[in-house]
Simulated assay, not measured.
Amino acid sequence: MEFSTKKIDDVELNTHIVGGVRHRRQVTPRKVLQDLQTFEIRTDDVVVITYPKSGTTWMQEIVSVLRHNCDFQKADQDFMRERFMFLDHQIGNEIAPYIKAKTQPSPRLLKTHLQKHQLPPQIFAKKAKVYMYFTCMKRNTSHQTPTSSPPHHFISLHTVYSFFFQVIFVSRNPKDTAVSYFNFHLGVVDLPKYTWQDFLHSFCIGDVVYGSWFEMNAYWWSQRKQKHVLFVKYEEMHQDLSSVILKVSKFLGWPVPDGKLADIVLHCSFDSMKSNRKVNFSEHPLMNIESYPFMRKGIVGDWIHYFTKTQTEKFDELYEHKMQNTGLQFEYISKTIRV
């Protein structure tokens, strides 16, 4: 569905297409994507996967705090990009995060925005401990004759698979995602610059960095019942953060200490994180944080300030077409929206 057909001059200059998906030339070179195909996933890895601007950093901070037993000073001792290895992201001549991850102690915290077919294949392998046990069953002897053989015992082998590595996928309604991602492009040095109309068109056809929102979200929504996958909506985090924290805590097996939940909610609130230099990317070399802050509004419903009536109608039609058989629905307006 077309919103615009204008060609953006710097799209081809600053990005390249690998495996049918557009990527940033400067931070996601072809070699990174190739090397990730042999990247080994450990059984106790925690992998946060999202489409960009869907609450990634928010979830990372929650996981970090839980990982360190709700010790905020220890959790924020390092910058977020040092705590979570951003697998598909390399800046300049720095050692690629996926290489650093190979020597990190377990459990490792990993992050990625990659589409399914570009993720390390081991993410989809049933990497698990295997438990085998035997049961002994006696043959039914009620019909035996005096000349029958003695009763036999049968051995039955049972196998139980138990997943250990865990995937947390955070999903955000596509309208707010598009608006936030559009503004993100304005604030990142090496990303193409669009008008809103041109960006929305590219977003809808999946021709933006990291590809199609629809394909990524449809896939992980289909995996939500897998025991090693937790599917969380950004809107849930916005509406009831404490419930989401408890859900993540239970999923990871990292309990919230008694009396600490309210403190975690405050620490992981949008306003707190926006002022936290260890998570707000204010010192990131590729971010123009003064003009376009990495953490902008943190609300549900900002799309209403960008989408025209015609754009809204066309987008709704597109969503129904792309996601008609998934059952994935979102809250698009929040009662607590801040203008």
Score class of each variant (00 low, 15 high):
residue 178 A to D: 14
residue 95 I to F: 03
residue 35 D to M: 02
residue 64 S to R: 13
residue 28 T to D: 04
residue 226 Q to K: 08
residue 56 T to L: 06
residue 232 V to M: 04
residue 333 I to N: 14
residue 142 S to F: 10
residue 46 V to K: 15
residue 218 A to M: 07
residue 211 G to F: 05
residue 243 S to I: 00
residue 316 D to I: 06
residue 40 E to R: 15
residue 202 S to P: 08
residue 318 L to V: 05
residue 199 F to Y: 13
residue 129 K to N: 02
residue 84 F to H: 11
residue 108 R to V: 08
residue 123 I to W: 06
residue 318 L to K: 01
residue 228 H to A: 06
residue 136 C to R: 09
residue 239 Q to V: 09
residue 105 P to M: 06
residue 140 N to H: 03
residue 227 K to I: 10
residue 211 G to W: 05
residue 292 Y to W: 14
residue 136 C to E: 10
residue 299 I to R: 15
residue 249 S to G: 11
residue 277 R to H: 06
residue 125 A to T: 09
residue 11 V to F: 05
residue 38 T to Q: 06
residue 224 R to F: 01
residue 290 E to D: 09
residue 335 K to F: 05
residue 4 S to H: 11
residue 249 S to R: 03
residue 34 Q to D: 15
residue 228 H to P: 04
residue 56 T to Q: 06
residue 65 V to N: 11
residue 336 T to W: 00
residue 307 F to N: 13
residue 160 V to M: 12
residue 259 G to A: 09
residue 133 Y to F: 11
residue 195 T to A: 14
residue 271 D to I: 02
residue 42 R to H: 05
residue 20 G to S: 04
residue 176 D to G: 02
residue 161 Y to M: 14
residue 189 V to N: 05
residue 36 L to T: 13
residue 257 P to A: 14
residue 33 L to I: 14
residue 274 K to S: 02
residue 252 L to S: 14
residue 266 L to I: 04
residue 96 A to I: 12
residue 36 L to N: 08
residue 324 Q to E: 02
residue 254 W to S: 13
residue 220 W to G: 07
residue 168 I to T: 08
residue 274 K to Q: 01
residue 29 P to T: 15
residue 208 V to G: 04
residue 2 E to W: 00
residue 42 R to D: 00
residue 229 V to L: 04
residue 224 R to Y: 00
residue 157 L to E: 12
residue 294 F to I: 08
residue 77 Q to V: 12
residue 145 T to E: 12
residue 313 E to V: 13
residue 76 D to M: 15
residue 33 L to P: 10
residue 87 L to A: 08
residue 159 T to W: 01
residue 79 F to P: 07
residue 13 L to F: 04
residue 284 H to Q: 06
residue 208 V to P: 04
residue 89 H to Y: 14
residue 179 V to N: 10
residue 34 Q to Y: 02
residue 281 F to T: 04
residue 33 L to R: 02
residue 154 F to I: 04
residue 141 T to E: 00
residue 294 F to Q: 07
residue 266 L to D: 01
residue 303 W to G: 01
residue 218 A to W: 03
residue 3 F to I: 10
residue 323 M to E: 05
residue 241 L to F: 00
residue 72 F to C: 07
residue 278 K to P: 01
residue 326 T to G: 04
residue 197 Q to A: 13
residue 258 D to K: 15
residue 4 S to Y: 03
residue 108 R to G: 02
residue 32 V to H: 02
residue 267 H to L: 02
residue 163 F to A: 10
residue 298 G to S: 07
residue 185 H to M: 05
residue 186 L to Q: 14
residue 238 H to I: 11
residue 34 Q to P: 15
residue 144 Q to T: 09
residue 233 K to F: 09
residue 173 N to V: 03
residue 152 H to C: 06
residue 182 F to L: 09
residue 333 I to P: 12
residue 338 R to M: 09
residue 188 V to K: 07
residue 243 S to L: 05
residue 319 Y to L: 12
residue 296 R to G: 03
residue 210 Y to W: 03
residue 64 S to L: 07
residue 242 S to Q: 07
residue 186 L to W: 07
residue 32 V to M: 04
residue 35 D to V: 07
residue 234 Y to D: 04
residue 97 P to T: 07
residue 329 Q to P: 02
residue 311 Q to H: 10
residue 179 V to D: 13
residue 55 G to F: 00
residue 323 M to D: 03
residue 220 W to H: 09
residue 46 V to M: 07
residue 281 F to R: 10
residue 331 E to Y: 00
residue 108 R to T: 06
residue 99 I to K: 08
residue 228 H to Y: 13
residue 50 T to L: 08
residue 177 T to H: 09
residue 302 D to R: 10
